[in-house]
Design a protein around this nucleic acid. Structure first.
Length: 643
RNA sequence: GCCCGUAUAGCGAAAUGGUAUCGCGCCAGUUUCGUAAACUGGAGAUUGAGGGUUCAAUUCCCUCUACGGGCUCCA
């Protein structure tokens, strides 16, 4: 067994056996330091003992490159940044400054608005302070003392945090002339922080509440070496390449126009082709699963939304009503009430349940201007919507069917990065957001949990994310900047059916109220296409590609044969285009490649004579001299099977 | 909605208190090509909209609109 020598923040050396457990390490460190859950250094590399404490996993030495070290390192960097800001802008007050998934931020209350130039100044100051290599010291004191301490400094944000804590003892961290309230842990000295980049400034409300003062949030990231920082910045740039707005523009999928208005996308021919193909595909899948497609208007009377209970919750985010003949009409923000009306018209008996109504329904929501994001968040969009009317006993089965459909369809279209989230209410924190009684909500949540467990895929549970009328299972993903977004949702509605008077006759000849499952496999077509663009870089499977084949005659001489090949494919329903422009073959291949066309068909002398085609795929594979009929039947097969 | 920032030809960028440069694309001519950019020439801009300061504004200031990064929100 080899021994590892660690240097603790207080300067003492510690020797542990490689592979020894955390408990053994703690014994050596001593309780006082163990409580502090400190990081240590090994040959100058950062080692974090803290996150291993809880799990009692095998004690392993890891550098910052492993996940365990990051949080501490970034958190310490945020302290260093606060120190630099304090030096440059005396009198500033600090909110909170945690490590986040990528980097850190600190919320700062400062009368001056920070500019990008200020960030550079702060960065420089940070480097200077890091070089001075101040030890980072932990100070423990009674909560009352700490309140007095921060009160004297007019640090009212810290006082506010402290006065809400339950603990008797609290800890402060000191480095140079900077002291902050913090549970730690931290790196042992400021010199550990080497490469820092402050990324951006934004506003953020104190304690995340729009009623409170808005502070300035500065985001940044740091690494133990410049090389790692450079690599990270490069990665960020690469991610920008995947931005759906960028790909959507390059591939001519959608655009926005100032005169049309914010959040109202215009679908270009390629985009409409994609949209339409997806919609047709979904309709086929849903009809196979027993859904009935309907068509309903995008506008209806305000009365409808009063009855459903949406008005008190969402009036502000609905487009203002249009008054006609003394009646207020709203652009619809959702399709549910229309579908409920159809249910009432068609369903009387429990024997008809589950009854499934589907529609590619256009809805309009007056979302806050600052929340718009390409086609991920728009004001007008088309939901891949359906409502299933079931008895409480049928809920779990039906939800399982829906989730299975989700997974199958995502597989087909090539969407891979997603996970399930069971979204529950928070009756303690925000009871006003949810209607109905707790027991009923719990019963509903149990049904959803049962269904999610039956699927066998991991899911997480989150409080305070439910709809006002019931719990739901959301399908979550991340956009290119790492921000979590909801792709799709399966919602259990335990309130509205009763409110709007939905009923059927049960097996005992008694009136009964159905439960409604609101589900949208693709969520909205707009958002879904955005995620597809980001996750596939626009390289859609052939059946989805707006242009499936580009025919490229080698030169003018073979144009005629090229046209024949092209027409033959169009006749067979293949979305083929002919590019016989006066350009070199290389040039036209490059163009087709940039357009992400799955197949290029090259025809020259050999092909024209033998009635064959030469194929180049998007991935660069070549196959020469394939009979035209074979290529057509192969591609049709591929499209049919959606491989 | 709030905080910060951005807006120059179809697209991506450059420059300047004295009306704008480059690349791609577009058009014309030459070239007729075997798997990711042939060559030459040309046209194209009331510098997002409105107002103000100034002899003079694309540049400085204000308002609006749209876009970007966050916060809040997301039925």
């Amino acid at each position: 067994m080899s021994l590892i020598k660690l240097t603790l923040p207080d300067g003492k050396a510690l020797q542990v056996e490689k592979g020894s457990t955390v408990l053994q390490a703690i014994e050596k460190i001593g309780t006082r330091l163990a409580q502090a859950a400190l990081s240590a250094s090994l040959d100058g590399k950062l080692v974090d003992l803290s996150t291993k404490l809880e799990k009692d996993a095998s004690f392993k030495v890891h550098t910052f490159a492993t996940i365990e070290g990051k949080e501490t390192y970034w958190h310490s960097t945020s302290h260093l940044m606060a120190y630099a800001i304090q030096e440059l802008f005396p009198g500033v007050k600090f909110g909170t400054g945690p490590a986040i998934e990528e980097g850190f931020y600190y919320d700062v209350d400062c009368s001056k608005s920070f500019t990008p130039e200020d960030l550079i100044k702060i960065e420089e100051k940070m480097k200077e302070l890091a070089k001075q290599n101040f030890p980072v010291k932990r100070i423990e004191m009674r909560r009352g003392e700490a309140i007095k301490f921060f009160d004297k400094r007019n640090d009212h944000y810290k006082v506010e945090i402290l006065s809400e804590l339950d603990e008797d003892m609290v800890s402060l961290y000191e480095e140079g002339k900077f002291i902050d309230l913090c549970t730690g842990p931290h790196v042992s000295s400021t010199g550990k922080i080497v490469a820092v980049k402050l990324l951006n400034i934004s506003g953020s409300y104190w304690r995340g509440d729009a009623k409170n003062k808005q502070l300035q949030r500065i985001y940044g990231i740091s690494f133990p070496t410049q090389k790692e920082l450079d690599e990270y910045l490069k990665l960020r740039e690469e991610r920008e390449q995947r931005d759906h707005r960028r790909i959507g523009k390059e591939m001519k999928i959608f655009t926005f126009n100032e005169d049309v208005g914010m959040g109202l996308p215009l679908w270009l021919p390629n985009g409409e082709q994609l949209f339409h193909t997806l919609q047709e595909y979904m309709r086929r899948e849903e009809e196979m699963a027993g859904y009935h497609y309907v068509r309903t208007p995008v506008i209806s009377k305000g009365k409808m939304y009063e009855r459903t209970g949406h008005i008190p919750y969402y009036a502000e985010s609905m487009y203002a009503p249009i008054e006609i003949e003394g009646e207020n009409y709203y652009l619809r923000p959702m399709n549910c009430p229309h579908h409920h009306a159809i249910f009432s018209e068609l369903v009387q008996s429990y024997k008809q349940l589950p009854y499934r109504i589907a529609e590619a329904g256009s809805v309009y929501r007056y979302e806050l201007s600052g929340t718009m994001n390409g086609i991920i968040r728009t004001r007008g969009f088309t939901q891949n919507d359906a409502h299933t009317y079931v008895t409480m006993n049928q809920v779990a089965d039906e939800v399982v069917r829906v989730l299975e459909m989700n997974m199958r369809i995502y597989e087909k279209v090539g969407l891979k990065n997603y996970w399930f989230r069971l979204s529950l209410p928070d009756f303690e924190g925000h009871p006003e957001k949810y209607s109905g009684n707790v027991e009923r909500w719990e019963a509903a949540a149990n049904e959803l949990r049962k269904a999610a467990q039956r699927i066998g895929k991991d899911f997480i549970e989150t409080k305070d994310e439910a709809a006002f009328y019931g719990p739901k299972i959301d399908i979550q993903s991340k956009n290119i900047r790492g921000k979590e977004e909801t792709i799709a949702t399966v919602q259990l509605d335990i309130m509205v059916p009763k409110r709007v008077g939905l009923n059927y006759t049960d097996e005992n000849d008694k009136p009964a109220i159905p439960v409604v499952i609101h589900r949208a496999i693709l969520g909205s077509y707009e958002r879904f296409i955005a995620f597809l663009l980001e996750q596939t870089m626009g390289k859609f499977p052939t059946w989805l590609s707006p242009i499936q084949v580009k025919v490229l005659p080698l030169s003018e001489k073979f144009r005629e044969y090229g046209e024949k090949v092209w027409m033959e494919m169009r006749k067979n329903g293949i979305r083929a285009e002919l590019d016989s422009t006066d350009q070199t073959l290389n040039y036209r291949i490059r163009n087709a490649q940039l357009e992400k066309v799955p197949y290029m068909v090259i025809v020259g002398e050999k092909e024209a004579e033998a009635k064959t085609v030469s194929i180049r795929t998007r991935e660069g594979k070549q196959e020469n001299g394939m009979p035209l009929e074979k290529f057509i039947s192969d591609i049709l097969n591929e499209i049919k099977n959606k491989e």
